[in-house]
Design a protein around this nucleic acid. Sequence first.
RNA 1: GGUCCCUUCGUCUAACGGUUAGGACAUCAGGUUUUCAUCCUGAAAACAGGGGUUCGAUUCCCCUAGGGACUACCA
Length: 478
Amino acid sequence: MSTQIKTRFAPSPTGDLHIGGLRTALFAYLFAKKNQGQFFLRVEDTDQTRYKEGSLNSILEGLKWAGLHYDGDLVYQSKRTAIYQKYAAELVKAGHAYHCFCTADDLATMRQEQTADGNTVTRYDRRCLNLTPEEVKAKLDAGTPHVIRLKVPSGETEFTDLIRGKVKINNADVDDQILLKSDGFPTYHLANVIDDHDMGISHVIRAEEWLPSTPKHIILYQMFDWDIPEFAHLSMVLAPDRSKLSKRHGATSVLEFKNLGYLPEAVVNYIALLGWNPGTEQEVFSLSELEKEFDLAKVNKSGAIFDIEKLNWLNGHYIRQKTIQELAELCLPYLQADENIKIQEYKNNYIELVVGLEQERLKKLSEIGERTKYFFARPTVDPQMMVWKKSTPEETQERLKFLLEFLATVPEENWTRNTLQDIVIEEIGRRGYGNGDTLWPMRVALSGEEKSPSPFEIAEVLGKSETIERLKMIIEKA
RNA sequence: GGUCCCUUCGUCUAACGGUUAGGACAUCAGGUUUUCAUCCUGAAAACAGGGGUUCGAUUCCCCUAGGGACUACCA
């Protein structure tokens, strides 16, 4: 019998979709796709107090942006409370769980007493397990606030994690976990097991933080007499100092990366490589290639540091793969957002030419405005900067005058980067000038920048009249 | 503190007991070039430490050290 592979991503709506969360989702998604399975999305919103407005939207948008489409309908745990309560009652009836009437204060003093003698292990002492059925009934009838706790059996729990191998935990180290809170909502542990079972999840792929509580889940599966899914616990994504990746290390939210001008291809490719190794020397993978190549067995056990440099490299790579039209479209929002650029005054065709000049330089789309501003407004040019390192101000003036005169004679039909380059360099040679002492000033005069595309590329995009005009202004000013 | 997990260049990683320990990013040096970038070539850079097992350990076992997760009526 072969069962279909089903995985899920189960975030709680308590904040933006984090880069680590996206990686968890990606691996669950890839594993499903690789095995012709299904990938589901479930919202773990059982804690109303931690709900954060907008976070669900961030999660959905982030996944969509990355191209991780989920199958079926979105499952909300908050809409399934009655189901959890039913199952919890079943467990109580079967003697696998029990009512606990301890208050937060009770638990606090209990823990205090437990640690008073230097012992540092706190565990629920099962005092409510000693209540007689009559006492329990009386308290329930009186409406005493209560929770339902898992009665962890003795023995040990062993399972084989698909990434880490055999993990064995002594049940004595497992606390009698609260399954149903006094507000009637389930805790993660109960809801998670019930939902994974109901959804037919075959492989639970989740973050490392769940590894220690997996025995609780396995115990629950056993108590319900349900098939136990496979587990795979992913290591964490770390900051450069090996601490938990957080705000102070820069962008962490997926949509933040989007806004910074990272392409989804690059982010997906990069985080796939964080912990997973393809087994070949290939580094660049599209999502569909990943869907074919992904292998859980080749996921690393140790935490991986998030290295923005390699992401930048991949992002630059993917930017260079785009057609000019695609890139211009991607850059447009950044140009529109730039208050110094009145982008609506320019034609698409011009924007494409401008963007095209930066294609091989761009690491992030967000750099486009700063890099191309001189195409949208005449630059202020530092006369010092115009002087080539092996040249002089006088020579520079002379070269600029030459360029002005010479370029004015170039017919419009020859005004292309290649032709301009050919004829200008030829003329430079004929006159015994140097390329550097002529072309450097030309480039700086047109761009105002120390670094930029070549003067011929700039001249072509600017057009003949604007090029001539800029040169003229520079010369007159000197 | 307890339980569990982890440990190869700065970073991500390869190596199914025998390799000059490989690749990529970053770094550095060259080449191309008017600058930057792209591209090409090259260099430097790692088996956490200690015990075993073995003819032989990066690889298997144990210990130590270091890092991490968990230890909530949060997920």
